[in-house]
C-alpha cells in the first residue's frame, strides 16, 4: 500500500514536470520562502537559523580559539572544523540514528571546502574556527541551506571573510530544470546539483551533481541557481546589517 502511494506520487511529480509544473505549485525558477535569523544562540560566538521552506537548519560558530589537540594547529593560518548533523526527528518516516552517517561525514567535508575559500584563515594562525550545523527539519536541500547558515553564523561571529557564501540546489525532472528541490523532487527527480556561490565575486565553492545532464543543462542549472542565490545574498546582507544597527543602537543608549 505504501509502495503504491509512493509510486503514484512519483508519477504525478513527473507528469507535472512534463507540463513545466511543480508539485507544490512553484515556477521552475522559484525558490521557496527563505527565513534568516542571526544571533539565535547565546553561547556561540556567532549563530544563525536558516529555513528554505520546511527545511530548517541552525548553525553555530566558535572561534577563532585554541586548537585541541595541539598538533592539528597550522603555523600560518587557522584551521576550519565543520560538522553537519541531522537530528533523529528531522526526517519523515523512520527515526534517523543519531550517530554520524557516511553521508553526513561527506557533507561536512564539502561544506568545509565551500567555506574555506572565503574565510581569511591566514589572519588567525594556530587557531581553530569551528562551525557546527544541526538539521532540525529536512525537506530537501539541507546541505545548501547549511552553507547559507554557516556563512551567516561566521559573519555574525565577526570572522573576516572575502564574501558571503550562498547555497542553492538545482535539479532536473523530465528535462525540466528546477531550483531549490524539496524532498519529493529530490526523491523522484532525475538529477540533483547543489551549488554554493561567493555571490559578489561570482565564484563557485561547492558543486556536486548526480543524475544525467547535458552540457547545456549544466549551464542552464548554474545560471538559474546564481539568480536565486543573488536574492538570498541580499536578504543575508539585510539581516546582518539589521543586527549590526540594532547592536550599535543598544550600545549608544
Amino acid at each position: 500500500m505504501i509502495a503504491q502511494q509512493s509510486e503514484d506520487l512519483r508519477r504525478i511529480v513527473r507528469e507535472l514536470a512534463r507540463e513545466g509544473k511543480r508539485f507544490d505549485g512553484r515556477a521552475p525558477d522559484q525558490h521557496r520562502p527563505v527565513r534568516l535569523e542571526v544571533g539565535v544562540l547565546s553561547n556561540a560566538d556567532g549563530s544563525a537559523l536558516v529555513a528554505y521552506g520546511d527545511t530548517v537548519v541552525v548553525a553555530a560558530v566558535y572561534g577563532p580559539r585554541e586548537v585541541h589537540p595541539r598538533h592539528l594547529a597550522l603555523p600560518d593560518r587557522a584551521i576550519l572544523r565543520v560538522r553537519y548533523h541531522m537530528a533523529p526527528f528531522s526526517t519523515p518516516d523512520e527515526r534517523k540514528r543519531p550517530e554520524p552517517t557516511r553521508r553526513e561525514i561527506e557533507i561536512s567535508k564539502v561544506i568545509r571546502e565551500a567555506l574555506e575559500p572565503v574565510v581569511l584563515l591566514e589572519q588567525f594562525p594556530r587557531t581553530s574556527i569551528d562551525v557546527f550545523i544541526e538539521v532540525l527539519q529536512a525537506d530537501g536541500s539541507t546541505r545548501v541551506a547549511s552553507i547559507t547558515a554557516a556563512s551567516l553564523a561566521l559573519a555574525d561571529a565577526g570572522v573576516p571573510m572575502r564574501d558571503l557564501v550562498v547555497g542553492v540546489s538545482v535539479g532536473k525532472i523530465e528535462n525540466l530544470i528546477i531550483v531549490d528541490l524539496n524532498r519529493v523532487e529530490d526523491g523522484y527527480g532525475d538529477g540533483d546539483m547543489p551549488i554554493a556561490f561567493m555571490c559578489r565575486r561570482g565564484l563557485i565553492t561547492l558543486l556536486q551533481a548526480d543524475g544525467q545532464w547535458s552540457p547545456d543543462e549544466v549551464r542552464q542549472a548554474i545560471d538559474m541557481a546564481y539568480r536565486a542565490a543573488g536574492d538570498i545574498y541580499r536578504q543575508m546582507r539585510d539581516v546582518l546589517k539589521g543586527k549590526y544597527i540594532e547592536s550599535v543602537r543598544a550600545l549608544s543608549q
Binding site: 528531522s90 532540525l136 527539519q137 529536512a138 525537506d139
Partner: peptide, 25 residues
C-alpha cells in the same frame, strides 16, 4: 514546531534551549 516528528517541543529555560522530538516505530 517540527513537522517531521510525531510530536516535538522547544523549551527555553532562561538561556538554556533544548529541542525534543518524538519518533515512533
Amino acid at each position: 514546531p517540527v513537522k517531521t516528528a510525531d510530536g516535538s517541543a522547544i523549551v527555553k529555560l532562561g538561556n538554556t534551549v533544548v529541542i525534543a522530538g518524538v519518533k515512533t516505530s
